[in-house]
Write a protein that binds this DNA or RNA. Structure first.
Lengths: 181, 181
DNA sequence: ACCTGAACACCGTTCAAGT
DNA sequence: ACCTGAACACCGTTCAAGT
C-alpha cells in the first residue's frame, strides 16, 4: 500500500497552506506526493470531493459540545482562519450542505433553525472577508516595501466580528422575549 | 472602433448568464465577440478586473436612495439572484471592497457601520447559498428526470432570508434602546 | 490496490506584428 | 486604437496498461 486517501487530504492541506487555493491544483497535490496526477483519482472521485474532505479536516478542531453559540461561532471562525484560504474552502463546501452540517445542527439546538442559519452565514461571510483583506494587506505591504502593520486591520476585523454576533444574538433574545409576552 | 470596454462587459455577462461562472473564461468571452483572446487585454488588464466590472453592472439596478435598510438588502439580493452565479461574482468582488462600497456606505447611514457590515455579510452569504442550492436542485431534477418542484426550496430560502434580516434589525433596535436608556 | 504514461480538451496572459 | 497569431506555462479528467 503506497498512499491512502488520508495522505492525499494531508498533502492537499499542505499545498493549501503553502500556496493558497488558487495554486492548490490536483497536479500540485500529486507532485507533493511524488505521484502522477492520475493517481489521485484512485483515492478521490474529483477535485470537489477532495475540497470537501479538506473542509472536514479544517473543521475537525471545532468542538460541538459547546453550550454557548458565541463560543461555537468564534471556534468556527478560528478554524477557518487558521489555514490560508481556509474560509473559502469551508464556505464553498458548507454552503452546499446548508441545512445538513453538524455545526448547523448543534447551533440550531442552541438558538433555533433561523438563528443558526443567520449566525452561520454571517460567520462564513465575515471569515471570508477577513481573509480577503489580510491577503490584500500582505500584498500591499509587499508592494509598499514596508512591514505589515502588526495591529491594524486584523484587530478591527476581530472586533467587528464580535459586534455582529452581539447584534444577531441580541435580535434572537428580543424575539424570544416578544414570543413569551 | 470595433469593440469597446462596455461591449466586453456585456459579452461577459451574456456568457455568465448562459453558461455560469465556471465557463466564463476569457477565451469564451472572446469567442462571444468573435475575437482572439488576446484582444480582451486591450480593454481590461486582467480577468479579475473584468469580474469587478461585471459585479458593478449586476448591481446597477439597486437604488441607493432607499430609506429602508430591509428594502436595500432585498434589492441587493434580488440583483445578485437575477443572473446565474451572480451572487458569487458580487460576493467575491464586494468582500474585497468591504468598507468602501457604495451600498455599504448607504446602509451605514441608515443603521451604523456595524449594522451595515452585519446585514451585508448576511445578505451575501444567504444569496450565495440560495444560488448553490438552486443549482443543486436543478442538477438533481435532471438526474431524477422529473420536473423541478415549483414552490419547494426556493420559497423557503426567501422566507429564511427575511427572518435573518428581522433578527439582525431586531438586534440593532434592541441595542439602540439599550443605548438611549 | 495503487500507480504510470499518454492523451484530450481546456485555461490566463504576454508580446511582436499587423491595420 | 484595436486586433491577430503564436507561444508559454499551466489546468481537470480519462483510460489503457503496468506491478
Amino acid at each position: 500500500m503506497r498512499n491512502t486517501r488520508a495522505d492525499v487530504v494531508a498533502a492537499a492541506l499542505r499545498v493549501l497552506a503553502a500556496q493558497g487555493l488558487e495554486s492548490c491544483s490536483m497536479r500540485r497535490v500529486a507532485a507533493e506526493l511524488d505521484v502522477q496526477p492520475s493517481a489521485l483519482y484512485h483515492h478521490v472521485p474529483n477535485k470537489q470531493s477532495l475540497l470537501a474532505l479538506m473542509a472536514d479536516e479544517i473543521l475537525r478542531s471545532v468542538r460541538l459540545d459547546a453550550s454557548d453559540p458565541r463560543a461555537l461561532c468564534v471556534a468556527l471562525r478560528g478554524a477557518m482562519l487558521s489555514v490560508r484560504d481556509g474560509a473559502d474552502v469551508v464556505a464553498t463546501v458548507e454552503a452546499f450542505r446548508l441545512g445538513s452540517s453538524a455545526i448547523e445542527r448543534r447551533l440550531a439546538e442552541l438558538v433555533g433553525g433561523e438563528g443558526a442559519q443567520t449566525l452561520l452565514l454571517y460567520t462564513f461571510g465575515h471569515a471570508q472577508s477577513t481573509q480577503t483583506h489580510r491577503q490584500a494587506a500582505e500584498f500591499g505591504a509587499l508592494l509598499a516595501e514596508e512591514l505589515p502593520q502588526e495591529a491594524g486591520d486584523g484587530r478591527d476585523l476581530d472586533a467587528t466580528f464580535d459586534s455582529g454576533i452581539d447584534i444577531i444574538l441580541g435580535g434572537l433574545a428580543a424575539r424570544e422575549i416578544a414570543r413569551t409576552n
